[in-house]
């Protein structure tokens, strides 16, 4: 540190102690949660299209909602599944949940379906069901196009599908009006490539922010009706639905963190160019 004191201002600008940055990041996440700025969330076209497509599904339709995400991305993906379920249950849609992620997917699905289903007075087996997990998602997605019961003989709770009233009405994708994918991995590509292209089921997706740039190409090709990209996309959807919740609360933190990172990047570059110029002048 003493050595650093001798360095020029511009060199120091490039070498701020990372612990300082960590503390600032931490504060940027925490402080806005206690003192929200309540910034309005502008809506992107792809989220609006997604919302409008779900809104256009006839009430009481059967909708599939794959919970294709790992527990590690819950901060981003759980609010997406929650807002999707609220929208679908508000329209009295019947929800068939499943997961292509073995570790955690089915239990997260169970918890969210029960909790949001409970908010709307829905009953397991009649209004919604959780099929659980089966390995090899390509085979699962294709197999459900022929006969869901062949792939999932029982639901997540071990009840045979033939004994579940809702599933008696859903032999395969022919009965499904829409697929509301929530994913943090490549599964969304397979939903598009295998299910939308082959069986023609309309679908939209909520994906993590790092996946959004790739998934936007499916939106432009009309393979996805719309997209919720990351927490921001979810906040937009929450506001369109009129249920501002966790994602909306996270927007202030995200705004400040993005600004902070940009500030540090600019600072680093100013220091880099100024130090370079100074070195050149000094010969």
């Amino acid at each position: 540190m003493a050595n650093q004191g001798n360095k020029g201002f511009f060199t120091r600008l490039q070498n701020v102690d990372r612990r300082v940055l960590f503390v600032l990041i931490f504060a940027s996440v925490i402080v806005p949660l206690f003192f929200p700025l309540k910034l309005p969330v502008p809506v992107t076209p792809e989220t609006r299209e997604f919302f409008e497509a779900v809104e256009a599904i006839p009430d009481s339709s059967i909708v599939m909602l794959p919970f294709d995400f790992w527990p590690s991305t819950l901060a981003e993906t759980e609010p997406m599944a929650v807002v999707g379920l609220r929208h679908l249950f508000r329209k009295n849609c019947y929800v068939v949940g499943l997961s292509n992620v073995g570790m955690g997917g089915p239990s997260i699905a169970d918890r969210l379906l029960d909790s949001i289903g409970g908010e709307f007075g829905k009953t397991y087996g009649i209004d919604y069901v959780n099929l659980g997990y089966k390995a090899n998602y390509q085979a699962v997605m294709l197999g459900m196009g022929e006969r869901i019961e062949d792939i999932f003989p029982t639901d997540h709770r071990g009840t045979p599908l033939s004994e579940i009233p809702l599933m008696r009405r859903v032999p395969n994708y022919d009965s499904v009006s829409f697929i509301f994918v929530v994913s943090d991995n490549v599964a969304v590509d397979y939903w598009v490539g295998l299910v939308n292209s082959r069986f023609g089921v309309p679908m939209g997706a909520g994906v993590t922010a790092v996946m959004a740039p790739k998934s936007l190409s499916f939106v432009q090709a009309n393979q996805l009706v719309g997209l919720m990209g990351g927490m921001k996309g979810c906040a937009e959807y929450e506001n369109l639905l009129g249920y501002p919740a966790r994602a909306t609360r996270g927007m202030d933190s995200q705004s400040i963190i993005h600004l902070l990172i940009v500030l540090f990047i600019v600072m680093g570059n100013v220091g880099y160019f100024a130090a370079k110029r100074k070195a050149k002048v000094e010969g």
Binding site: Q14, R18, L21, I261, Y272, F273
Partner: peptide
């Protein structure tokens, strides 16, 4: 954040 600050140079 730390990596972007240190490595992102024009």
């Amino acid at each position: 954040a730390s990596a972007a600050y240190r490595a992102f140079r024009a």
